[in-house]
Amino acid sequence: LVRYRTISKIPQITLNFVDLKGDPFLASPTSDREIIAPKIKERTHNVTEKVTQVLSLGADVLPEYKLQAPRIHRWTILHYSPFKAVWDWLILLLVIYTAVFTPYSAAFLLKETEEGPPATECGYACQPLAVVDLIVDIMFIVDILINFRTTYVNANEEVVSHPGRIAVHYFKGWFLIDMVAAIPFDLLIFGSGSEELIGLLKTARLLRLVRVARKLDRYSEYGAAVLFLLMCTFALIAHWLACIWYAIGNMEQPHMDSRIGWLHNLGDQIGKPYNSSGLGGPSIKDKYVTALYFTFSSLTSVGFGNVSPNTNSEKIFSICVMLIGSLMYASIFGNVSAIIQRLYSGTARYHTQMLRVREFIRFHQIPNPLRQRLEEYFQHAWSYTNGIDMNAVLKGFPECLQADICLHLNRSLLQHCKPFRGATKGCLRALAMKFKTTHAPPGDTLVHAGDLLTALYFISRGSIEILRGDVVVAILGKNDIFGEPLNLYARPGKSNGDVRALTYCDLHKIHR
């Protein structure tokens, strides 16, 4: 019993810090008490220290592992850092350059016999395009090294910054494609005289377009951006097909006994025919423009016929181009109408809503002055909100995010209106959640004399007048207030005048 009563005193000691020596009952000389009392004092002292730490809000209350900052290894790049964003855009520009100039170089340097010394005699450094290609190869190699040090988000939505895990993730992902696209074939085969082989191998750079397509997928929600990307894709495919079309004609031209190829026909049409040795002929500019003209006309199913396939190889390629053109029509131009419709969806919704308003007016036989006010209010409210119901949009977000959005939407009023000066951010967040926005066209009466005042109004834009009878008592403008002081009276009061809008007004109100 003594032991039980001794232990039962522990909660009292913990909360009230009572010393055991003052209790005459606990001072009985028993061996059990002498053993338990020192333990009680020690526990009391420890609990006292913990309570003191909690009340003082000291940093040592938290466990040590929670006080440590997340460790980022040296030379690790955050995937959302500004440097990584700028670097990704730079790589994107280099990939676009590669997609345009690599097929052009591979096709127009394929057994090209233009006048001038061969590239091997001039030297590697004197070729501007080769120098640019070398810079692109170096940048792609540097990009691989950067990807080995860039964080990523795993399946659990955690940012991984450990170098080993980053390397394994990159090896399992895009490393092989990036490595093949970054191989400097110019340096590996330079001086061997195989410019045709170098041009063909350099087309491996186009593998990076797969990554670019995935990154550009984030802009699919913007109709104008999608339309622009589709047109660029169409032009890029036409450019690639033009390079292939020229390569076919250029390879067949020296081996044909009869002059029936499209390059021969082009030379005869523009007065620059090929001679018996295969030299001469149109310039590279004429060849490229004509090839691009043929691919565009074939892809769009126009086909004027002034550039036509004559050999079997050219006919087979033309059939493939027609098939590609039909697929592009289905996948690209078939979506253009939907994209344009999405661009004008706001206008369509406006006309639909206006039609419903006019049908309501016609069905209920609203008189002319009231009908005009109804239409003007709808037009003004639509121009202010673009038909978007803010309350319906915010309803799907958590309250903390709703408060931040409301604070942002009402920031101008909260910053410049005098009653809100000096208020804490928590108070402003709470008030912003209570605001209701209303609009009024010129001549609209917001409050009639004798109406119950259940709200306090803040003028965000425009001006109003307060009338008693036919006498203008006051004219209020931006950041002015009218209405009933909230919670100042037990019952809502009545208006002693009319409140009429002089201009288009936007008002925020808080109800009782």
Rank of each mutant, 00 (worst) to 15 (best):
I72M: 14
R74W: 04
H79M: 01
H79Q: 02
K84T: 01
W87P: 01
W89V: 04
W89M: 03
I91H: 01
L94V: 10
V95N: 01
I96R: 01
Y97K: 01
T102V: 07
A107G: 01
L109A: 06
L110P: 11
K111Y: 09
E112L: 06
G116P: 13
C122Q: 01
G123W: 15
G123N: 15
L129G: 12
V132R: 01
D133G: 07
D133W: 01
T150D: 14
A155L: 12
N156R: 09
N156T: 13
E158H: 10
V159W: 03
V160S: 01
S161T: 12
H162A: 14
A167L: 05
Y170K: 01
P184L: 01
L197A: 04
I198T: 12
G199D: 08
L200N: 03
L201K: 01
K202R: 04
L206A: 04
R208N: 08
K215C: 04
Y219W: 05
A225K: 01
F228C: 13
M231I: 09
A235P: 01
A235F: 07
A242F: 01
I244G: 04
M251E: 03
P254K: 15
M256N: 15
N265Q: 14
L266H: 01
L266G: 01
K272P: 01
N275H: 04
N275Q: 03
L279A: 14
S283L: 01
S283K: 01
K285Q: 13
A291W: 01
F294V: 01
T295D: 01
S301G: 14
V302T: 14
V307K: 01
E314P: 01
V321T: 02
G325K: 01
L327E: 02
I332N: 06
I340Q: 03
I340A: 12
L343K: 06
S345D: 09
R349V: 08
H351F: 05
L355Y: 06
E359Y: 03
F360M: 04
P367C: 05
N368H: 14
R371T: 03
E376H: 15
Q379L: 06
W382G: 02
Y384I: 15
T385L: 03
T385F: 04
M390D: 05
L394R: 02
K395E: 13
G396R: 08
L401V: 10
I405C: 05
I405W: 02
L409T: 08
L413C: 07
T424S: 11
K425C: 04
A430H: 15
L431W: 03
M433S: 06
K434A: 08
K434M: 04
F435P: 02
K436N: 10
K436Y: 11
K436I: 13
H439R: 11
H439Y: 01
A440K: 03
A440H: 14
P441G: 09
P441Y: 04
T445V: 11
T445W: 06
A449K: 12
